[in-house]
Design a binder for these strands. Sequence first.
DNA 1: TGTTCAGGTAATCATTCGATAACAACCAAG
DNA 2: CTTGGTTGTTATCGAATGATTACCTGAACA
Lengths: 203, 203
Amino acid sequence: MTIEHVAPAPRMKAADRRELILEAATAVFGAKTYVGTTTDEVARAAGVSQPYVVRLFGTKEKLFTAVIERAYSRLIGEFRRALPGDPEGRAERMGAAYTGLLAERGMLPVIANSTALGGEPVIGRVARAGFSDIWRFIRDEAGFSPEESREFIATGMLINTIVGLRLTGDYGNEVSATEVLDACFPDAVAKVRALLPQVDEPW
Amino acid sequence: MTIEHVAPAPRMKAADRRELILEAATAVFGAKTYVGTTTDEVARAAGVSQPYVVRLFGTKEKLFTAVIERAYSRLIGEFRRALPGDPEGRAERMGAAYTGLLAERGMLPVIANSTALGGEPVIGRVARAGFSDIWRFIRDEAGFSPEESREFIATGMLINTIVGLRLTGDYGNEVSATEVLDACFPDAVAKVRALLPQVDEPW
DNA sequence: TGTTCAGGTAATCATTCGATAACAACCAAG
DNA sequence: CTTGGTTGTTATCGAATGATTACCTGAACA
């Protein structure tokens, strides 16, 4: 635990502090994976003490599930805002909404990593629920056909993989990485690239 | 550490023992994620002592990278065996090779999880290298077009996600899981479903 | 102006877990 | 046989880290 005598954090309503910690936690968990990050790192990123993080969320696991739930919730919110308008461009707008959310620190890696945690008893349930919500939204609210849904989700998973692997960092330097990105995002390479390198930036 | 007085493991050539441990480690890492599994669990799954696992591989991290390298290597091996024959059915045969490898304990979750670990300095390099090898194989040896490659990989990532989330098996009734599966694998639902539930079975 | 409670910290504990050391049995070669 | 390398073990350490406890402090309100 880092002992770092510091002026107490300025007073704040617990709800606001919670949101602030969730934002910081998203960034840290996103950069270092669930088990790889300590509650102390989250606390320092949020500018509070480690015990306070634990007290506000109960356990590290609960903190993480809160982060995941928030991420999926935000994602659906973005999708919903992209809904109205010409039905023709709906998929494009929703895709843009997705990449838009990527700009938020840690948001995408958290979502991407969550899909690999189905084996964890508690976290897995939350991750499945989040994914199911997305799927239902796409089918019911957005009205995608099965084939459209599959295509849309698959593209999202591909983005997740590319970001998860940090392949964007190798673009231009490594042949295969360059090729993968060119093949997967013929139109949007620049956009995807511009958004993602910052994923690991120190907090 | 589990103290469990046990008759010494029967003697074996170190190379064979290594392979045996790698197989066991694949199953355990696949079921519980990298940081979630202990070297002691791997050791017990392999029927040897924990310190011996560490000594054979140096560190837990090196053990895991060995597991990943082996997984991608096996995967390319399977793909290569599916290559000869009518070029028309090549993609189908390779897909079958993939799902075939899934039957091996932990193999798929290890590959799937590896794509989320690009942020780890050492493991990330290995994961990227493995993915790049697959990509190069698909382009160069299998001769897929960019669009075919993208489609092929995307489908694989979708499978990874579904398995990673454990949308199959016992959890299948929990959510719209069957719907996801039906939409994503209209032809192969039965096959995929039959293969995957066993991912987490106790070792 | 006292008092009460929410917001927050410092100190410390209890485990867990990867790693190390030291030792023991087996087998092959000279 | 005995000697040396290989295969393995038991015992134990040390660091990391999530959680707990006890305490402090500022403001709102009577």
